[in-house]
């Protein structure tokens, strides 16, 4: 009986120790499946009414990681757009470095009009320094005002 009690208390102690050992990994949550979903091409607007378009394109109002070097290292947590007081559009995207290493990336934005045609020249590349396992915010403003309806952000590694 004494042996059983000893064994039971030993097991309990082990259990407690195991409980202490369960540490939360200090990592950002990087849902790469969500990134994969973002990469799905979408159909272009059909040329004829009621007909599906055979042409596919990258989805608008999204962030496209166009660089193979960082495609599985970054996680785009959010991308939103808002009108500024002057009527221009400001795109804001939070990007997470999922790796244990610092990353230097850069992004640029193309704004589109109602017809999904580019409404202005593409913006310049804007650098973003990402320390290991941290996030940073990319923001870009349009030049145009009312004619801007859509946007697409490209992200690549800075070289």
């Amino acid at each position: 009986m004494r042996k059983i009690i000893m064994a039971a208390s030993g097991l309990t102690a082990l259990g407690l120790l195991a409980g202490c050992a369960q540490q939360m990994e200090p990592a950002p949550i990087c849902n790469m499946a969500g990134i994969n979903a973002q990469r799905q091409l979408v159909a272009l607007p059909a040329a004829a009414p009621g007909e599906p378009s055979p042409l596919m394109e990258m989805p608008l109002n999204s962030v496209s990681i166009t660089d193979f070097n960082v495609i599985n290292k970054l996680y785009v947590r959010s991308v939103t757009a808002q009108r500024t007081p002057t009527g221009t559009v400001k795109v804001i995207s939070q990007i997470i470095n999922c790796t244990d290493y610092p990353l230097n990336v850069e992004g640029r934005t193309q704004f589109f009009d109602q017809a999904q045609a580019p409404s202005e020249p593409v913006s310049g590349w804007k650098r973003l320094n990402l320390a290991p396992r941290t996030s940073n915010t990319y923001a870009e403003s349009s030049i145009g005002t009312k004619n801007v309806q859509y946007y697409m952000v490209e992200v690549r590694e800075t070289r």
Partner: peptide, 12 residues
């Protein structure tokens, strides 16, 4: 890059 950023920012 800097002139593009400043230009866009001034327009806001």
């Amino acid at each position: 890059s800097m002139t593009d950023q400043m230009m866009r920012d001034m327009l806001t």
